[in-house]
């Protein structure tokens, strides 16, 4: 065995292309499902169970989430992969605690956003989707929200890449915007799959809008627009606080952090990547 056989070749682009296709298909599946639901449904949801839309919502969003996972997971370096279980434990623990308080917040994306900031949008999206899938072993009702969770991870990674985590006050702003989009995507799931929201706090807000005569989807979307942006702003701020507390040696271990100078002042010229 020669010395050179102990080393790795430079990574080639061939396998990457196939994975990119899967990621793209996943994203398209989620987007198409969302558009279909919004275009076809709003009016008649409450006239029957509308289980056709339920199945489309479930199928399309889950398929998208799974394609994303299969596309992204094998491309992640092990140093990112081992963080995902850590992120999931944080998500699930905080999400379960918050769910039991009755407050209209979720806090179930801290781990996802943390990964996204350290390892980028693709890793964030995969973590979000995986989080829903693994959490569904304890609470199956989160499974249908996998696509929304993936979107949160993706947007958080994008925000980090654009430098929104370099200043502490920018992070909650990015979180707010992410929350708006994530809320709009998740609302059809709550409406068509569950016919409402799971928590007492969120339920009260939906009831208020229903009392004013909104359709169920509209009421839930409005509720999401109240809860989600606030929730995500807090989550992004918490994550910013956490990554600032990281020792430099740890933060710079991540190629994404080094390459896009995610955390201001923690950069330096590095070879490769």
């Amino acid at each position: 065995m020669s010395q050179q056989s102990q080393t790795l070749p430079a990574p080639g682009p061939a396998s990457v292309r196939g994975r990119r296709l899967l990621e793209l298909l996943g994203a398209v599946s989620i987007a198409a499902t969302f558009i279909f639901l919004v275009l076809t449904q709003p009016a008649d949801i409450t006239n029957g169970l509308a289980s056709g839309s339920t199945l489309v919502a479930l199928g399309g969003f889950l398929l998208g989430a799974i394609l994303l996972i299969i596309g992204v997971l094998p491309t992640l370096p092990t140093s990112t992969l081992v963080l995902i279980p850590v992120a999931l434990v944080l998500n699930i623990a905080l999400g379960q605690i918050m769910g039991s308080t009755g407050l209209p917040f979720y806090f179930d994306a801290i781990g996802t956003v943390l990964i996204a900031v350290l390892a980028g949008p693709a890793a964030g999206a995969a973590t979000g989707a995986l989080s829903s899938i693994v959490w569904s072993f304890i609470n199956p009702t989160v499974l249908p929200f996998a696509a929304g969770a993936a979107l949160i991870g993706f947007l958080a990674g994008l925000a980090a890449r654009c430098g929104l985590f370099r200043r502490f006050y920018l992070a909650p702003v990015a979180g707010f915007v992410t929350g708006i989009l994530a809320g709009v995507v998740s609302a059809p799931i709550a409406a068509f799959v569950f016919g409402g929201t799971a928590g007492a706090g969120t339920g009260a807000i939906v009831s208020a809008f229903r009392a004013m005569g909104d359709t169920l989807l509209a009421a839930i979307t409005k509720q999401a627009l109240i809860s989600d942006p606030m929730d995500k702003a807090i989550v992004f701020a918490v994550v910013a606080m956490l990554v600032y507390a990281l020792p430099r040696r740890t933060a710079l271990q991540f190629a994404f952090v080094r390459r896009f100078n995610v955390l201001a002042g923690k950069t330096q010229e590095t070879p490769g990547d």
């Binding site: 199956p140 009702t141 409402g196 928590g199 969120t202 339920g203």
Partner: peptide
Amino acid sequence: AVILAPFWLSLLIMHGLFFPE
């Protein structure tokens, strides 16, 4: 029970009391 109880309660209030349709 932890999952379903709050969910049912929420549904009951939401649709039992406010169902414009």
